[in-house]
Amino acid sequence: MQDTVCVRVLAAGASPAELARCRAVLDPAERSRAAALGTAGLRDRFTVAHGALRVLAGRAVGVPPSALAWRPGRHGRPALTGPHAGLHTSLSYSGDLVAVALSRGRPVGVDIQHLPPGRDPVSLAERFFHPQEARHVAAGLDAGQRADRCLRLWVRKEAAVKSAGGRLWPNLAVPVHADDVVACVEPAGPHRLADVATPSGYRMAVALAGDAPYAIEFYPLTLADVLCSDGSMLAHTIDSRGHRC
């Protein structure tokens, strides 16, 4: 049977009550990390992102969100510990959106990025990407298309590296443009990539370790959906898109 990766995207904005509910499920280290961030926007987005991850992962394995514990990997990729280690998780946030990916059995990486205003991405791609990819970015018809091409390549690289649990920098030149199965160099191994639809101005990709195909269950949610007191919304998103709690 084909593997499945669950991808959820939600807005990072939250009411004070929602923020309090997210904060309540964080562990002391996560609360400290949130408090250390320099602006209210960064603190709130971190709180929503990690709170949503805990709620979604907790429901997936049938335990309270605060009962989960992650251990950082060698290069920072956190892995669930204890009896839930078979569930692989990945978290990404950028701009006003948060992405959570859950996979049973296969390590997962998800990356979402907001298109930043700023420099033309051609020089960035020339400096850090594979030459074919740099040419692909430079061949964009206008600044918007060049930035979008660069952003798509970027999230694919980040997703693959997260799936691999490796360092970003040695893997930056690994080509991800043409093929969905890419070979990370550190640690060496194949990862299967997929683009995931996003609102305009964003790009997102997901990767699972290994080259076997997989299905993607992708639903945008609201934070209110995630925080549904009885979890019914999340249960029903798997079977029926129409249910609301």
Binding site: A36, L37, E158
Partner: peptide, 19 residues
């Protein structure tokens, strides 16, 4: 602290290095 205080992401780090 670049990531823990400023929220610096990998993509922004790359922009910073290029600049």
């Amino acid at each position: 602290q670049l990531m823990d205080e400023l929220g610096l992401s990998s993509s922004l780090a790359l922009e910073v290095l290029l600049e």
